[in-house]
Design a protein around this nucleic acid. Structure first.
Length: 353
DNA sequence: TAGGCCATCTGGTCCT
DNA sequence: AGGACCAGATGGCCTA
């Protein structure tokens, strides 16, 4: 199917080209069955007496002789039915059915185009949300959920001016997502999903000691290689009493949200969209002197959920490690978009000033 | 095979 | 009147 093939290709120009395709461009390959189905539906509508009062019937003005003859022919067949009030029904003549069919086909083409535009927009959204992958596309609903979480997370970062810890960040992103998507996001962030999923579900209420992998201090981001097990932090400087309540409590301690239900109206409340920088976020770090220019950017990589998390969470003063092209470090087909690189620098420059 | 996801068709409603 | 938008229905494809 063309649409499916199209969605596999993630190039924006192609998307835009597709979005502006004329109505009949993609009709050729499947027009036959569509016509068949639509014609069938139309005939069903127009032959069943109870449904014959359709909009299509009422807006045809012109009549030709052929139709007049056909009307007379069909009048007898409907004579047994009880008369109804209102304007006299227009009989479905051959010409009217033809016009109705054409109108319906035009409407179908418009609807297809509309849905293609919608899907194009969704594809664009997939690209700016974390964990963009050409091969492992997020579903529509998951894309929207992830985008919502992403906006939320970035909003909170901007609002608080603090860096969240990695685990909380991932937790935020994964709120309400399905298990496969959660695994994917965790994989993208090189974080073992068990680190927070178990906290969320099975281990709520358990206190997590200083060596718990659950607590990832922001400073551990300085390491160039990170994984769920490797990045266990011995620092609990950011430990919060609410941590003892597990996953949700951690999120609350960071974001001050007391409602674990992120489908609630509170979570769905409108937020001012923050800066969107394509799966990367940079936050000013206002701690030690030698970190005065340290902002971190996260370069996500799309890993199949089954693939063990490995490496390549990169942090640097400019968002890019000097001398290292992030594209080379990104496994599979996950790449930082070139056209957004200036945006990172721009954003970092903004924080530097 | 059931369930999820998707594209498409379709009729209704609202708006211009 | 025609187009945009919407939601329900339907069937295909894919995966666990």
């Amino acid at each position: 199917m063309l649409t499916r093939l199209f969605s596999e290709t993630s190039l924006i120009p192609e998307v835009q080209k597709f979005a502006s395709w004329p109505d009949d461009c993609d009709d050729d390959d499947d027009e036959s069955d569509k016509d068949e189905s639509s014609e069938k539906s139309l005939q069903e509508v127009h032959t069943e007496g109870s449904l014959s009062e359709s909009k299509d019937d009422g807006d045809i003005i012109g009549e030709d002789e052929e139709e007049e003859e056909e009307e007379e022919g069909t009048e007898e067949a409907e004579g047994e039915r009880p008369k109804k009030r209102g304007p006299k029904k227009r009989k479905m003549t051959k010409a009217r059915m033809e016009r109705s069919k054409v109108r319906r086909q035009k409407a179908n083409a418009r609807e297809r185009n509309r849905m293609h535009d919608l899907n194009s927009a969704l594809d664009n959204l997939r690209k700016v949300v974390p964990c963009y992958s050409k091969t492992q596309k997020l579903s529509k609903i998951e894309t929207l959920r992830l985008a919502k979480n992403y906006i939320w997370a970035l909003s909170e970062i901007l609002r608080s001016g603090k860096r969240p810890d990695l685990v909380s960040y991932v937790q935020t992103l994964c709120k309400g997502l399905s298990q496969p998507t959660t695994n994917l996001v965790a994989g993208c962030l090189q974080l073992n999903s068990r680190n927070f999923l178990t906290e969320q579900g099975q281990e709520a209420g358990r206190y997590h000691g200083p060596n718990s992998s659950f607590a990832v201090h922001p400073y551990t981001y300085q390491c160039s290689r990170i994984s769920g097990s490797q990045c266990q932090s011995s620092t609990m400087a950011n430990a919060h009493p609410l941590r003892s309540h597990g996953y949700c409590a951690t999120y609350e301690s960071l974001y001050g949200n007391t409602s674990p239900d992120y489908n609630s109206s509170e979570y769905d409340a409108p937020l001012s969209p923050p800066l969107c920088i394509n799966g990367n976020f940079s936050v000013k770090q206002d701690t030690s002197p030698d970190q005065d220019k340290n902002y971190y950017s996260m370069h996500y990589s799309a890993l199949p959920s089954s693939r063990p998390s490995g490496h390549s969470l990169l942090f640097g003063s400019s968002g890019m490690r000097s001398g290292v092209h992030s594209e080379n470090l990104l496994p599979y087909d996950m790449h930082v978009h070139h056209d957004r690189a200036p945006m990172y620098e721009e954003l970092n420059a903004f924080f530097h000033n």
